[in-house]
Design a protein around this nucleic acid. Structure first.
Lengths: 226, 226
DNA sequence: CGGACTATATATAATAG
DNA sequence: TCTATTATATATAGTCC
């Protein structure tokens, strides 16, 4: 090759390594071109230098992807194809399941009943009656629970109110402030204490409004999947 | 290179072409190995001969796929990645939608009601009552329709039967066969004609049985998707 | 760096066995 | 068809600019 036999072993000097890389890269690309022309071959050559730069040669009228795909096919070690096909399969299954689920919902919503037999209709009816009973029970359970909760809260606030009253009465007994000033403070404090449960009641309204919106949206998810 | 300058131009003699290909292929692979070792480079080399045979060289601790992917990334013309990602995305969305649908079904089945507000429960209850009414109506419609159908069929068979009877009576009047022989044939014919509706009735049973199985499977599709 | 030069080492076309 | 040989053409390491 050059002035004295060279040993095929990593070049430690990084500059020389790069120089050699450039020279030899040009040589190998030239060889690849010659192989293409002389022998009608197709060649895909990808090279990355130790500094990370990439160079390539590809025969005319051919792409790296094309050759790589053929290589995969030939070597039988195609790892992507099965993965891709499995995905496609899963997608299909999911779509089918999705359609089944939608149909069931439509049927439970009183639509799309034409293809059901009498027995199926009877089963569906019974099932729905049983289910509506569950919903009803849950509703009653919820309303009684929340009523209890509010009762407890009100009771709690009343107790606080009463203990405050007592506290102030005790202070009234211990000290003697001017009656009018004290009366003013006292009133406002009562106003706050008794007002609290009402604030709760008002805060309830908007919450219920949004719940109603949710309810209207029931069974009409905005689904637009291909 | 050899004995006399060679011209870089397609070798027309196919045998020589193959010979040259083999030799030069070995040479180029050797160069690729040297590049790898000397310069710390990574090389992916794919070659297809004019006869379709494939050969390769790949640097140790590296794969064609890896280098090809890096090439794609570098060249920015990666066509697979977006496709793959879109699929993954669609898959995820479908799964989410399916879960929502399942949840809706569970709720319409009287399960999973804990997180619903009172208003939502009330809406669901009303919706279900309306729906069960639709199912009930459809059921009544179906039973009346199918009853009519069976009535018509029975009527149809009775008419056939009667017309056959008349026909035989007429024959009986025109000719005079030995009474006993004729009686035998006659009976069997009647048996078939009147039996037909019964065959229908019997065939109905297994059909209804399977329908019942369908009904039992309601809301429990055997879904086991990852 | 990037070429240009050159002395050698290699690759390989042609040829023979 | 292969393999080995051999005469040349090429490739390229080292060097200089």
């Amino acid at each position: 090759m050059g002035r004295g036999k060279i040993e095929i072993k990593r070049i430690e000097n990084s500059t020389n390594r790069q120089v050699t890389y450039s020279k030899r890269r040009a040589g190998i690309v030239k060889k690849a071109k010659e192989l293409t022309v002389l022998c009608d071959a197709e060649v895909s050559l990808l090279m990355v230098s130790s500094t990370g730069k990439m160079h390539e040669y590809i025969s005319p009228s051919c792409t790296h992807k094309n050759l790589y795909d053929r290589y995969q096919q030939a070597s039988g070690s195609n790892l992507w194809q099965p993965h891709y096909e499995r995905m496609q399969d899963t997608l299909q299954k999911l779509k089918e399941v999705n359609n089944k689920l939608r149909k069931e919902i439509r049927q439970r919503n009183g639509e799309d009943l034409d293809e059901l037999s009498f027995q199926q209709l009877r089963g569906l009816e019974q099932n729905m009656e049983k289910s509506v009973e569950c919903v009803r029970n849950r509703k009653f359970h919820q309303i009684s629970t929340s009523t209890d909760t509010y009762k407890k809260k009100i009771k709690n606030h009343e107790e606080t109110h009463n203990s405050l009253l007592r506290e102030f009465e005790e202070r009234d007994a211990d000290f003697s402030f001017p009656a009018l000033d004290f009366e003013g403070d006292y009133q406002s404090t009562i106003g706050f204490a008794t007002g609290n449960p009402q604030i709760f009641a008002f805060r309830l309204q908007p919450k219920l409004q949004s719940d109603l919106q949710d309810e209207e949206a029931y069974g009409s998810y905005g689904l637009s999947l291909a």
